[in-house]
Measured scan of single mutants.
Amino acid sequence: MQYKLVINGKTLKGETTTKAVDAETAEKAFKQYANDNGVDGVWTYDDATKTFTVTE
């Protein structure tokens, strides 16, 4: 399945996608991506759209 990440950071904004077997695996990949880019915020997930959002 394909999952999307929407980033609403202080210095980084945008979107990225990943393919993963489940939401938990996608979340780990997205959190690593956010961490690598210095984004630390509040996470939400919408199962209907398979979209994670992180807001600083």
Rank of each mutant, 00 (worst) to 15 (best):
M1P: 09
M1V: 15
Q2M: 15
Y3H: 03
Y3G: 00
Y3P: 01
Y3E: 01
K4F: 12
L5D: 01
L5W: 02
L5H: 01
L5E: 01
V6S: 04
V6P: 01
I7N: 01
I7S: 03
N8Y: 14
N8H: 08
N8E: 10
N8C: 07
G9Y: 08
G9T: 15
G9Q: 05
G9N: 06
G9I: 13
K10Y: 15
K10E: 13
T11C: 10
L12W: 14
L12V: 14
K13I: 12
K13Q: 14
K13R: 12
K13N: 09
G14K: 13
G14S: 15
G14W: 15
E15K: 06
E15L: 04
T16I: 14
T16A: 13
T16L: 13
T16Q: 11
T17Y: 13
T17A: 07
T17E: 10
T17P: 02
T18C: 09
T18A: 08
K19T: 15
K19I: 15
A20Q: 05
A20W: 03
A20G: 04
A20Y: 06
A20H: 05
A20L: 03
V21Y: 14
V21D: 11
V21W: 13
V21A: 12
D22W: 03
D22R: 04
A23L: 12
A23R: 14
A23D: 05
A23K: 14
A23H: 10
A23Q: 11
A23S: 11
E24W: 12
E24L: 12
E24A: 15
E24K: 11
T25A: 13
T25M: 12
A26D: 01
A26H: 00
A26S: 03
E27Y: 11
E27A: 10
E27D: 05
E27V: 07
K28F: 11
K28V: 11
K28E: 07
K28Y: 11
A29L: 13
A29H: 14
A29Y: 15
A29S: 11
F30I: 02
F30D: 00
F30M: 03
K31N: 04
Q32F: 05
Q32L: 10
Q32N: 10
Q32P: 02
Y33L: 07
Y33F: 12
A34D: 00
N35S: 14
D36N: 10
D36K: 10
D36V: 10
D36C: 06
D36S: 10
D36H: 09
D36T: 10
D36P: 02
N37F: 13
G38H: 12
G38W: 05
V39H: 05
V39T: 03
V39M: 06
V39R: 02
D40I: 14
D40N: 13
G41F: 03
G41I: 01
G41V: 01
G41T: 02
G41H: 02
G41K: 01
G41S: 02
V42D: 11
V42G: 05
V42Y: 13
T44W: 09
Y45C: 01
Y45N: 00
Y45M: 02
D46T: 05
D46M: 04
D46P: 01
D46G: 02
D47T: 08
D47E: 15
D47W: 08
D47S: 11
D47A: 13
A48V: 12
A48P: 06
T49R: 07
K50Q: 09
K50Y: 13
K50C: 04
K50H: 12
K50N: 07
K50V: 04
K50A: 08
T51Y: 03
T51Q: 04
T51L: 04
F52W: 07
F52I: 02
F52A: 00
T53P: 00
T53L: 06
T53R: 05
T53Q: 05
V54Y: 02
V54M: 04
V54N: 01
V54F: 03
T55C: 05
T55F: 08
T55K: 05
E56A: 06
E56M: 08
E56N: 04
E56D: 08
E56C: 05
E56G: 05
E56R: 03
